[in-house]
């Protein structure tokens, strides 16, 4: 067992920067602009801002409060915390989402993270020193991913960087949070300042290839109110808010479970959210999407975004760096810092999984890490090899838009109905270094309605075509359609199997806990006895 005391955060700023570091990652610079472009730029911003107020802020406070309660109960993972709070046999099974969501996301997140390391290398060797637009960056991106005429994508260079990424992640995971805490404190502010510098450069230059930056910003912010009638945009925007803030998957809960019982959660949680949103809305919202519009035009930008999740940043930023003096070095540094921000986020995503196996199954950190590494590599194989036909995109859609929303919905219902609003509100306000507006007590009730409404509306309009594979993008060539369908089904089946595996792990942990209690001759009741006692 690791020394939990040694893992306690060294300071308030440390935990905020670590949580912000886990939140500022590939999501802000890569996923957010791509999702916004997919749904028409400015139109995406309205549901995004609504979701931020109705779900983002309340859920941040809920998860920080939940995590601190969990630490007091001696639990550091979602199944354990739900088990403690519900005191019902089914409680821990609801917490499966706190294992499943991070695992599904970490698999493809690690791959995307490795792309940023690959682009660091590409930039350093001068691949970005050209001035042309779409053809080169698209070719470079596809070439890096090994996407060509063949069915299987085999990225030779990409595999090297993927292995380096895996090695670094699992090395840091084994060393404990102290390393992340220290590292994030220095790396994130540098990354933010660098991005601010880039943004200032864009505003001072004002025009690229004869197109004004204001035209790009106009697309990124001009809403088309008619498009808001499509629930898909609301689902995607809510999923993006949850994903970027690492909500609905237990990562924040695991981090904050190491707080002391009188530590502030209200101001700390809100600060991590505001830093993350500042980076996402202001920096990434200026650097990537508007520039893609300038370089490629709206139609090509939307088509690219629909083809590959996380892709736009890899298309636009090389062109920006290509126009700067010493752009190869600056590009290498920027992508390297982006890689490090992704690294902190991916390690934080693995923490809930590790915490579960350590706390509930009493595995050692080394054993958990090695098993997690082997399973991740096995799952990464189809993600890498079937990239051309959207294995990764299918995982990303279900993990972010469905699993995270359901996870957040379950959390809010348990927070309000089981923990109780009075106790929950006390959890948010105890030790608070700010006055929490009372209106949020009512917004906390709106959060589950918003989440359930979005999910139900989307299911009503889009679930059937999605499940029957009749909504595949029209840009897919007819010859590729059968492959795309097979890969989509394979991706869903794999995700289903892993959900089953996680449920079995929880059942195994419960059986193990009962066996240990019997060994120690403790009068621990069975799940059924607990439930009958409570009822």
């Amino acid at each position: 067992m690791i020394n939990r005391k040694a893992e306690r955060w060294t300071g308030r700023l440390g935990v905020i920067l670590a949580v912000a570091g886990s939140a500022i990652g590939l999501s802000s610079f890569l996923r957010f602009p791509t999702e916004a472009a997919r749904y028409g730029g400015g139109t995406f911003m309205i549901p995004y801002l609504c979701a931020l107020i109705c779900c983002g802020i309340p859920l941040v406070w809920m998860e920080w409060a939940f995590g601190r309660y969990g630490g007091i109960w001696g639990r550091h993972n979602l199944p354990g915390i739900f088990d403690a709070v519900t005191r019902r046999p089914w409680g821990k099974y609801l917490g499966v989402l706190g294992l499943y969501a991070p695992f599904i996301i970490i698999v493809y997140y690690l791959y995307v993270e490795s792309w940023t390391l690959g682009y660091t290398f590409y930039s350093a060797i001068g691949k970005f020193t050209y001035k042309s637009a779409l053809p080169d960056t698209t070719y470079l991106f596809n070439h890096y991913l090994g996407i060509g005429g063949q069915v299987i994508s085999l990225p030779i260079i990409g595999l090297v960087f993927l292995l380096i990424t895996l090695a670094l992640n699992f090395y840091i995971l084994n060393r404990g949070e102290a390393g992340i805490d220290k590292f994030t404190t220095y790396a994130m502010p540098v990354f933010c300042l660098f991005s601010v510098g880039l943004m200032v450069y864009l505003f001072l230059t004002r025009s690229f290839h004869g197109v004004s930056i204001w035209r790009g910003l106009d697309y990124a912010w001009k809403p088309d109110l008619h498009a808001l009638a499509d629930p898909a945009i609301w689902l995607s925007a809510t999923g993006q808010v949850l994903f970027t803030l690492s909500l609905g998957l237990g990562a924040v809960i695991t981090y904050t479970s190491f707080l002391r019982k009188d530590d502030d959660v209200a101001l700390s949680g809100l600060t991590s959210l505001s830093i993350n949103e500042l980076v996402e809305i202001v920096l990434a919202g200026t650097l990537v999407l508007p520039m893609a519009i300038i370089f490629f035009g709206p139609h090509a930008t939307t088509a690219t975004a629909q083809q590959h999740a996380f892709s736009l940043g890899f298309m636009t930023l090389p062109i920006i760096f290509g126009q700067l003096p010493h752009g190869d070095l600056l590009g290498a540094l920027w992508f390297l810092l982006l890689f490090f921000s992704g690294l902190t986020a991916s390690v934080s995503l693995m923490k809930p999984i590790v915490a579960f196996f350590e706390d509930e199954l009493h595995w050692t950190r080394a054993k958990t890490s090695w098993i997690l590494l082997v399973v991740t590599i096995a799952y990464l194989a189809p993600v890498v090899l079937l990239q051309k036909y959207g294995f990764l995109d299918e995982m990303d859609f279900w993990a972010v838009n469905i699993v995270l929303l359901v996870g957040a919905l379950v959390e809010t219902v348990i927070f309000i109905a089981v923990l109780g609003m009075a106790r929950g509100w006390e959890g948010i306000t105890t030790g608070a270094r700010m006055h929490v507006p009372v209106i949020f007590k009512y917004i906390l009730y709106i959060t589950p309605i918003f989440l359930l409404g979005t999910l139900a509306w989307w299911a009503w309009m889009h679930a059937l075509p999605k499940l029957m594979l009749t909504d595949l993008p029209a840009t897919i060539a007819k010859a590729d359609l059968p492959y795309r369908m097979i890969v989509t089904i394979a991706s869903r089946v794999t995700m289903g199997l892993f959900l089953l595996l996680m449920l079995l792990a929880i059942r195994f942990a419960a059986a193990r806990a009962r066996a240990r209690a019997t060994e120690l001759s403790l009068p621990t009741p069975t799940d059924e006895e607990v439930s009958s006692d409570v009822s």
Partner: peptide, 30 residues
């Protein structure tokens, strides 16, 4: 830029800058 885009962008940027400054100010206060 169109008027709608300017309004939406101004609201979002102002709100997020104000929130961040408020948080950092409160955090620094003893």
């Amino acid at each position: 830029m169109s008027r709608e885009a300017i309004i939406l962008m101004s609201i979002a940027w102002t709100a997020i800058f104000a929130l961040t400054l408020f948080c950092l100010w409160r955090l620094e206060r003893k």
